[in-house]
Amino acid sequence: MGCCFNVNCQEPFCAYGCFREHAAMVRHLVYHITRDANDVEDLTQEIMLKVYRSLDGYRGGSFRAYVARIARNHCYDVLRRRQTGELPLADEMLATVAPGPEELVVQREAVWEVAQAINQLHPLDREILLLRHVHQFSYDEIAAAVNMRPGAVRTRVARARRKLVDLVNGREMREAPELG
């Protein structure tokens, strides 16, 4: 349970880590579960309110895993209510930093390749990779968030990474020009 580094921060969740960090993580989870950028803010708002209202029910452990679990459950509830399939990651959502036009193209292509590979992963694998690679969750925290055993999470992460490498490599091999 960590507080943000600003000792005078008095935001609602600060005793459990800074609200803003949790909000960023929730936004990412919401987006990658629902795949609808229009709903990110609304769902994040609902989730954070739910988290706040359920602070009494928090019984220790990693608070951000607790938040992630609430976020996942809420998102899946919403999806279940809507009964809609998931949408692919839109190309326009891919962020790029482009010092120049040429680098923009190269970077965007690289990110696009990985995005295509990620789209082929299981949704749970995407969530796990998001928590692990972006938000630096430990395996135990991920396990608490997705309701799995840590060992299973570790295996799942390794397999997802391997699959990702294979997918990207395979794409590159297919797209490489034939010689001779």
Binding site: H28, Y31, V40, L89, M93, L94, V111, I118, H133, V134
Partner: peptide
């Protein structure tokens, strides 16, 4: 690329 892709679309 993973970080870039997974965080894209959610500007904060």
């Amino acid at each position: 690329a993973l970080v870039c892709t997974l965080t894209a679309g959610v500007g904060v």
